[in-house]
Simulated assay, not measured.
Amino acid sequence: MLSRRAALMIGAGLAAAPMLVQPVLAEGGLDTSNSAPSDLSGLTRIKRELVAPPEVHEHEQVALGGPRIVEFEMRIQEKEIQIADDAWLQAMTFNGSVPGPMMVVHEGDYVELTLKNPPTNMMQHNIDFHAATGGLGGGALTLINPGEMTKLRFKATRAGVFTYHCAPGGPMIPWHVTSGMSGTIMVLPRNGLRDQHGEPVAYDRIFYIGENDFYIPRDQNGAFKRYPDHGEAYPDMLEVMNKLIPSHVVFNGRVGSLTGDNALKAKVGERVLMIHNQANRDTRPHLIGGHGDLVWEQGKFNNPPAVDLETWFIRGGSSGAALYQFRQPGLYAYVNHNLIEAVNLGATAHVKVEGEWNNDLMEQLVAPTPYDADLEIRTALP
């Protein structure tokens, strides 16, 4: 149950800020009682078990037969997470991970999500699918209090990668999103991905990278503050958020989450589909030492992909996809190419690639060695 102090703080924030459209339009949600239910009894049902990023649950790249009803279940977890060696966040999460897990279906499938808000949580939550049509992306039909659950079904009518996020109304929306409540759903074309010529293309691996901007307050000594619960954190966090200057910009929930022992792995010759989501701010992914062979920068697979991009642009509130075939072994850095955010604030991942080096693509002709700089100067004089 929300503490009286937390309720007062959050209520004060609500009263002070302009409201967006409220996700629930009547008691109990939207009135759909006059709508005839869809008869989907003839469709096959399949249940997918969600997995934590950067992994993605098992799926087919080309649809097997006609449309299906694809069932998912997610629990909302409010919990403290460590986002850097010296910083903690009172996070709000889908299924306990930041970002929330990726869901994969095919165009024409029906997504059926069971969403649960355990009684141990403090907040109302919902889910807004950018891939869905109607009712604020499902937000109008999924707002639930602690101890409640709901079930939403929508038809995946457009192919691509799309953001989903929590959107409970007013100033709660940016707070919940910047506290970790966002993720991606991928709607594949039924016949799979196509290159710029319309020819089929497949991937050997998939990397799912969620980029988050966090706003952690500091104390009078400059140290990051730590809070016992969300209600205590809200006023200070709101003040930092409204300055639009993040304290951290990270991949998959914390600084270093995809580096060192947690680095992503691939092999020379493998085609890797890199999915990048940013629910709040613009970003610009770049693979140092590689390229985007095929890039769906706007994330929509029915549009022809761009070819051979060095850096691509992901709009805030969207997801994008890039396919790259690794050609050389070694350690690659995948970064937000605002290098201040990559190096100083945390938006860096590593990819360790195994295989044989190809000197035709790159070769060191002279190893680092001293040279006579004075001689170079003397011979350059007239």
Score class of each variant (00 low, 15 high):
residue 242 N to K: 05
residue 247 S to W: 04
residue 21 V to A: 10
residue 265 K to P: 14
residue 241 M to Y: 13
residue 94 F to L: 09
residue 33 S to F: 11
residue 239 E to N: 11
residue 339 L to G: 13
residue 137 G to K: 03
residue 86 D to Q: 08
residue 177 V to I: 00
residue 352 K to I: 14
residue 268 V to N: 13
residue 304 P to K: 00
residue 297 E to M: 12
residue 317 G to D: 13
residue 288 I to G: 04
residue 300 K to G: 15
residue 280 N to S: 06
residue 359 N to T: 14
residue 174 P to K: 04
residue 380 A to S: 12
residue 40 L to A: 09
residue 82 Q to C: 09
residue 171 P to L: 07
residue 323 L to D: 10
residue 235 P to E: 12
residue 325 Q to L: 05
residue 231 G to V: 00
residue 216 I to T: 03
residue 217 P to I: 02
residue 107 E to F: 15
residue 16 A to D: 12
residue 165 H to Y: 11
residue 133 T to A: 09
residue 99 P to I: 11
residue 381 L to C: 15
residue 164 Y to N: 11
residue 244 L to M: 09
residue 340 I to Q: 12
residue 85 D to S: 03
residue 309 L to R: 06
residue 290 G to D: 12
residue 271 R to N: 08
residue 122 M to Q: 06
residue 182 S to L: 01
residue 188 L to Q: 02
residue 371 Y to D: 05
residue 262 N to C: 08
residue 362 M to Q: 12
residue 139 G to M: 01
residue 63 A to N: 09
residue 139 G to C: 07
residue 115 L to R: 00
residue 198 G to A: 13
residue 194 R to A: 01
residue 296 W to Y: 02
residue 191 N to S: 12
residue 293 D to M: 11
residue 39 D to C: 02
residue 94 F to I: 01
residue 293 D to C: 05
residue 212 N to T: 04
residue 140 A to Y: 15
residue 285 P to K: 00
residue 300 K to V: 15
residue 215 Y to V: 05
residue 157 T to R: 09
residue 211 E to C: 01
residue 20 L to D: 14
residue 22 Q to K: 15
residue 191 N to R: 12
residue 288 I to F: 07
residue 51 V to E: 06
residue 356 E to F: 07
residue 80 E to N: 04
residue 102 M to T: 07
residue 175 W to H: 05
residue 284 R to D: 00
residue 65 G to P: 15
residue 321 A to L: 03
residue 70 V to A: 11
residue 345 L to C: 01
residue 81 I to Q: 13
residue 340 I to C: 11
residue 257 S to K: 05
residue 338 N to P: 10
residue 358 N to Y: 07
residue 241 M to E: 02
residue 370 P to D: 03
residue 372 D to H: 04
residue 190 R to P: 03
residue 123 M to L: 11
